[in-house]
Design a protein around this nucleic acid. Structure first.
Length: 713
DNA sequence: GAATGCGAAGGCAGG
DNA sequence: CTTCGCATTC
């Protein structure tokens, strides 16, 4: 048969990976080395050449975006239909599994998914009900603890209390949390994975069924898998199935949410006889960018080791700008972007990356000033907005009365006279009788154990929910949602609000109806349209909202940039304490992860990469004077070019900076110091006898020196 | 019980 | 600089 459409345009290692036969395979795919292409072509190879039926194939990714892209590229490449292949994220596949086997998994039929905000609120309520001081037991920390345990596959009973009071208490809270989830019929993200792992462990015949079905298992971004995902895959692979994983240990940046880079480092010992294929040719970045990125990642001691190369020319050097402060940094970047656009670049070819979401604001302000359209990825996603969650809480409660998370959210929003006292009574009753809050309200109301006023308010709420429930009809579900939003009083409530955001909120409510109208249910053999929509809202949170307007400058965190590429990339805030972040400062492993994050960011750039740092930055309300990031020192000078502010942008408050030391030293100049050795001038300030220059020394790092004493040459 | 105002506390990355 | 919990007042 003709396989040229599968094998043409692949280099040798890529072709080796695509056509590899038998056994397990680990493909170490460097940034921009054609990782997705290899996966997609591998699947086409299996289907068209090895004649593996589509329904024997399972392909797992980490993000919905990656899953969508893989699906569409497979469809593009295949000459025959892909059949009932499973392609999805770990969470999406686990969810599907649990919907099919909710009974065996010990879940309720209509179980709902909590996002991390729901989870946080639930934990706060549990701490309150246990009468624990939340300054001693910070909800964030508890949430982190519970998720970390689940990521490692541990239930409360599996955790060693170490005879330690703190640990014991944490385990107790975890147990209470589990009970509350069960009462409310809700599962969090980590629970999806843990529960579906247990489903297989406890139901050997089910496991056997899926083992028979999925003879070929492919995993993307393997370095991002956590312990439970790894165990899940390993269980499914069993002794007969074939595993093909693609990953890059240098791009492992999700350790903080449980990812274990060891999974990729230990792959060959866990799967004896598996083959290792390295993809090292980079098709994305020009030479200088790639070399600069390589020289940074080489500072990490624990790597499998890989050296990316390119056939491309050196291209432009990596640009470096030292900004006076964070405002100057933003103005410089936006000035450069204007130049790029004037030179014919599309706005969507330009990306600004940063370490923390908060940094986007400055760039946004500068972009607004210059009227350049932009789009911020990540941040608050559509289905995470308060008003959207309020509306969906009503929808959830109407369809699943026992959903306590939805109950708590909807019961007094908008305010209808059900205050803390009444709610406390309901919560207590629910705990006592181990029932849902909905049931507790009904029982309390009927028992007459309530003040008349509260009982009235509760009855009003119960009627509201019940009436909508009985209004079950054949209307498309978006009409139900529309009616619920109107009847709940949310629309009126936001209409009346005077905080200036009311109109936005109402528009978002309308957008919920819109999203429901456009929603396509892909799981209709498992779920009603409405439940599929609710699951979609939790699992996807509206990642792709607003993608219709593409011609924008792209703003995003370094994390969300992974997997993307742009001709022109700016990375801001390369400062100690920000990047690497101070929270990582005292842990070598986390510092390595920060460096990998920097590597990921730099390797997004195709033609032009500009790094910047600010000498002073307003952070959390106070001024700081951070040192330039260590990563700037790790780039050899020959790949770097120091740039100065574009002419139309003056450096505020430092007009003298450009003129001082004129004729003697200038920014970017190579200098030699008798003691510190060779370095590059990063910056300067002051005049005459007090003039100082900031020098980045190859050996000792960045230092400020007084020109008159430093004896620089 | 709801609206308003104040002070303290917490702040990273994201599916 | 925000957000959240709390106290005060209506």
């Amino acid at each position: 048969m003709d396989v040229s459409h599968i094998l043409d345009r692949l280099n040798d290692p890529q072709r080796e990976a695509v056509t590899a036969s038998g056994g397990h395979h680990l493909v170490l795919a460097g940034a921009g080395s054609g990782k997705t292409r290899v996966l997609v072509h591998r699947i086409a190879w299996l289907i068209e050449v090895e004649q593996v039926p589509g329904w024997n194939i399972l392909a797992v990714t980490f993000t919905n975006k990656a899953a969508r892209e893989m699906r569409s590229r497979i469809d593009e490449l295949l000459t025959i239909p892909s059949g009932a292949m499973w392609v999805g994220t770990f969470h999406g596949l686990a969810h599907r599994l649990l919907r099919s086997h909710w009974k065996e998994a010990g879940l309720s039929q209509g179980f709902q998914i909590m996002d991390s905000d729901d989870q946080f609120r639930l934990i706060k309520r549990i701490l309150k009900s246990l009468d624990l001081d939340d300054s001693r037991w910070p909800p964030r920390q508890v949430q982190w603890f519970i998720n970390a345990q689940k990521d490692e596959g541990r239930r409360p009973k599996h955790i060693d209390d170490c005879d330690d009071f703190f640990q014991k208490q944490m385990i107790r809270i975890y147990q209470e949390y589990e009970d509350a989830c069960k009462r409310g019929g809700v599962v969090d993200f980590a629970e999806l994975l843990l529960r579906s792992h247990e489903l297989w462990l406890n139901n050997p015949e089910l496991l056997e069924h899926y083992r028979k079905r999925f003879s070929h298992i492919l995993v993307d971004e393997f370095q991002d898998s956590n312990s439970i995902q790894y165990a899940w895959i390993r269980l499914l692979v069993g002794t007969h199935n074939l595993l093909f994983v693609v990953g890059d240990d240098d791009q492992s940046i999700y350790g903080w949410r449980g990812a274990r880079v060891e999974n990729i480092l230990n792959f060959q010992s866990d799967y004896p006889g598996s083959s290792l294929i390295k993809l090292e040719q980079n098709y994305r970045s020009s030479g200088n960018i790639l070399k600069a990125a390589n020289s940074i990642i080489e500072h990490n001691p624990t790597r499998l080791g890989k050296n990316l190369w390119t056939e491309d020319g050196a291209g432009e050097p990596v640009h470096l700008y030292s900004a006076f402060n964070e405002v100057d940094e933003a103005r410089f970047v936006i000035g450069r972007i204007q130049e790029q656009i004037e030179q014919g670049k599309q706005r969507s070819e330009i990306a600004i990356l940063y370490r923390t979401s908060a940094q986007s604001r400055l760039f946004e302000e500068a972009l607004i000033q210059t009227s350049i359209p932009y789009r911020v990825y990540g941040g608050m996603r559509f289905f995470e907005r308060a008003e959207v969650k309020d509306a969906l809480a009503y929808v959830r409660l109407i369809n699943h009365q026992h959903d306590d998370v939805a109950f708590e959210r909807a019961v007094n929003q908008p305010p209808r006279g059900i205050g803390p006292r009444t709610l406390d009574a309901i919560r207590q009753h629910a705990r006592e009788f181990s029932c849902s809050m909905w049931q507790a309200s009904v029982e309390l109301k009927q028992g007459g154990d309530m003040q008349a006023r509260a009982a009235n308010a509760i009855q009003h709420f119960i009627d509201l929910i019940e009436d909508n429930r009985s209004a079950d009809d054949d209307l498309p579900f978006h009409e139900d949602i529309s009616r619920i939003i109107a009847i709940s009083g949310l629309r009126d409530h936001f209409q009346k609000s005077r905080d200036g955001k009311g109109q936005d909120r109402i528009e978002n409510l309308d957008e919920v109806i819109n999203a429901a109208r456009q929603f396509i249910n892909h799981e209709d053999e498992l779920l009603s349209d409405l439940d599929a929509f609710l699951a979609h809202a939790s699992l996807e949170a509206g990642e792709n909202q607003g993608q219709e307007y593409e011609e924008c400058v792209q703003l995003m965190t370094l994390h969300s940039a992974k997997g993307l590429e742009f001709p022109v990339v700016f990375i801001g805030g390369l400062e100690e304490g920000l990047f690497p972040h101070r929270m990582s400062a005292d842990d070598p492993e986390r510092l390595e992860e920060e460096r990998r994050l920097c590597y990921v960011g730099m390797t997004r750039a195709m033609q032009q990469l500009t790094l910047s740092h600010a000498e002073s930055r307003r952070l959390h309300g106070s001024e700081s004077y951070p040192l330039p990031s260590r990563y700037l020192r790790e780039i050899p000078h020959q790949y770097l070019l120091e740039v100065r502010s574009t002419p139309q942008i003056s450096r505020p408050y430092a007009p003298a900076a450009q003129s001082n030391s004129e004729g003697q030293f200038h920014l970017g100049q190579q200098v030699t110091h008798p003691k510190f050795g060779e370095g590059v001038i990063l910056n300067s300030e002051g005049e005459g006898s007090t003039a100082r220059v900031q020098v980045n020394f190859a050996d000792t790092g960045v230092k400020w020196l007084v020109v008159n004493y430093a004896n620089l040459s």
